[in-house]
Design a protein around this nucleic acid. Structure first.
Lengths: 112, 112
DNA sequence: AATATTAATCGTAATATTGCAATATAAAGA
DNA sequence: TCTTTATATTGCAATATTACGATTAATATT
């Protein structure tokens, strides 16, 4: 039905999935990588860099802001975007914890 | 249009986004976490554990197999699933690299 | 061979996502 | 105030995703 049954999963599972989903688009990865490179930029720079229409970029930025991984500050007519360092660290830790759960027990048991 | 313009992004960007997208559903997170816990199990176990219909679980398993993060071995009428340790490590490194790109330069510059 | 078990596939419905043109909004400058 | 600049929102079309019932395929078991 195209509708995720999020009520049958834990909050942590939904949370991690939700963030992974936001990272699950190359335009949003590209935006983050560009922000890493230049530290800060305005929306128009991203439209030029990425090669998608302004409304499309605006939508992707909205998604990234929704999970808090970036922040936008209004500066006159433009908006200055940057990565939110604390949230970035949080999300990094989230993934690290998820991956380490398995990595730490590798070799202890074999596969099928 | 619902169609990602993957041709305008780099292979790395598409690759990371593609994997993140697969992790972007709580059912698939739940499947991976269960596999971490029990090491190996058959498909029916996952259907019972997760609480989604068998075809739905089968579809999620297909996605996970598509990116190689799990593997399934036919054992009689059932299929034994487990995490692919090497691929897991690869993907872990992929995310780690992505996140460290920013973390390593935190404090060097300020935000907006 | 007939039946049971398990998983994959097919078909379908409902919802979500992606992308853009057109428009709206909001602030700066002339 | 009028225009310009920059971004957000709206509305829409196309495609993708999620979920499941029904069916199929393949192997065990009797």
């Amino acid at each position: 039905m195209g509708l995720t049954k999020s009520d049958i999963f834990t909050e942590d599972q939904n949370n991690l999935a939700n963030i992974a989903k936001v990272l699950g688009h190359p335009a949003r990865i590209a935006i983050l990588q560009y922000l890493i490179k230049v530290n800060t930029c305005i929306g128009g720079d991203l439209v030029n860099q990425i090669g998608l229409a302004q409304p499309t970029i605006s939508q992707h930025l909205k998604e990234l802001k929704r999970v808090g991984i970036i922040q936008g500050t209004i500066e006159g007519t433009s908006v200055c975007y940057c990565i939110n360092p604390q949230k970035w660290k949080n999300i990094q830790t989230l993934f690290e914890t998820f991956f380490t759960n398995f990595t730490s027990k590798i070799d202890s048991d074999s596969c099928c």
